[in-house]
Each structure stands twice: as structure tokens, then as C-alpha cells.
Amino acid sequence: MSEHTVTAYDDELNVMAGRIAEMGGLAEKAFAEAVSALVSGDTDLARRVIDQDRRLDALHQDVEEGLIAMIVRRQPMGQDLREITAASRIANDLERVGDLAKNVAKRAIAIDNDIQSKKLAIGVEHMTELALGQLKKVLDAYTGRDAEAARHVQEADAEVDAIYTSLFRELLTYMMEDPRVITSCVHLLFCAKNIERIGDHATNIAENVFFMVTGERLPEDRTKVDETGAV
């Protein structure tokens, strides 16, 4: 797209997009490290994750203030309006991803030992890989203004949901077999839920990227596959 007559407007939009990308990077890193802390029982790493969430929050506030200033100064229209509203929502989602990562890190400290079951760890890691992949792809779609890629992210969320459902079943089985693991299993269950919600945030971001690029709403035809209610 060609430049604005007022070039400072383009600079502001670029700065905004850069900050969103930076938030995305921080959220990804926090999430990956939180799960790594959880799986390996590394409480130092978990504490660092908790600490670093402040940076993401500060950046979020910075982005919000910048967006409001742009609305006041530029009265954005069309594509610009969509970019700015999308950026605001995406920044919210990323901030939430950070909070969820922080929560996983807190639980990693609470559990304070390795996940007893290798099988469970594999399940959590696999789900994390998928959700993290979703987050990466959607951030690339945002940077590349790629509506098709955003659509794929939305479609792939079902996979994350499916793994969450199977983890849920597995954890239930463990708790029924041995009541002594209930505390750690409940923590794990919340962690799994948090990871699943990170996938949901990636989907939200995908919908916003799609709208930002095309001006159309992404049809929400996929049915939610959280079957834990039926277990």
C-alpha cells in the first residue's frame, strides 16, 4: 500500500506493528519457558517467567496508549482503522497469553517436582508444541498480512482442543487410580487448560488478522471440540 500524505502516520503505524511483533515474541518465549519449567521441574526458570510478565504488561500499556493517540490524531479510516482496531485486540490477546504462561509457571513451582508420568509430560509437550506453533503462525500471518495463513490457524485449533480432551481423560484416570496425585494432577489440568486457551487466543488473533487484511469476518463455522463436558 502506498504511503500516507502525512508520512508521520506511516511511522506511527510501523512502530505499532513493531511493538505488536515484540509482544508476540515475548509471549511466545514466556509460554515456551513456562511449559519447559513445568515439564523439567525447573523452579528458577518458572520464577524468571513470572518476573518477565511485567515487561509484556508494560509493552501492552504502551501499545494501548499509542493506539489511542493515533485515533485522536489521525481519525483512522478504512484499512488504517482495521489495522488499529486489530492491533488493539491482538495486543489484548497477547497480554492474556502472557498471563496464562505466568499461571503455568506458578503451578510449575507449586508442583515442585517432575511430572511423574512421562506419558503425561509427552501429552503436555505435544499440546504445547501445537499451540505454540499456532501462535507462531498467526504472528507471522500478522506480520505478513496473510489472510490465508490466518484462516489455516483458525482451522487448526481443533487439534489443540482434541489433545486437551484426551489429556483431561488421562488425568481423570490417574486421579481415580491414586488419590495421592490429585493435587499435582489438578495443577496439571489447569496447566493443560491454560495451554488450550493459548490456542484460543491464537484463533482470536487469526480472526483479527483476517478482518484486518480483508475487511471480512472469518466465518466461525468450526464447532468447538472441547468434549470434556461429555467425558
Binding site: S2, E3, H4, T5, V6, M77, G78, R82
Partner: peptide, 19 residues
């Protein structure tokens, strides 16, 4: 017209990109 115009010229005009 103001959120999602069809024509590139409209888009350029409403977003302040006219040369």
C-alpha cells in the same frame, strides 16, 4: 465505504494516501 471500500482509489482517499 469507511471501513472496507471496494475500490483502491476510495481506500487511498479515505486513508489519506492520495498523491
Amino acid at each position: 465505504i469507511f471501513t472496507n471500500p471496494v475500490d483502491k482509489r476510495t481506500q487511498d482517499y479515505i486513508t489519506g494516501r492520495f498523491g
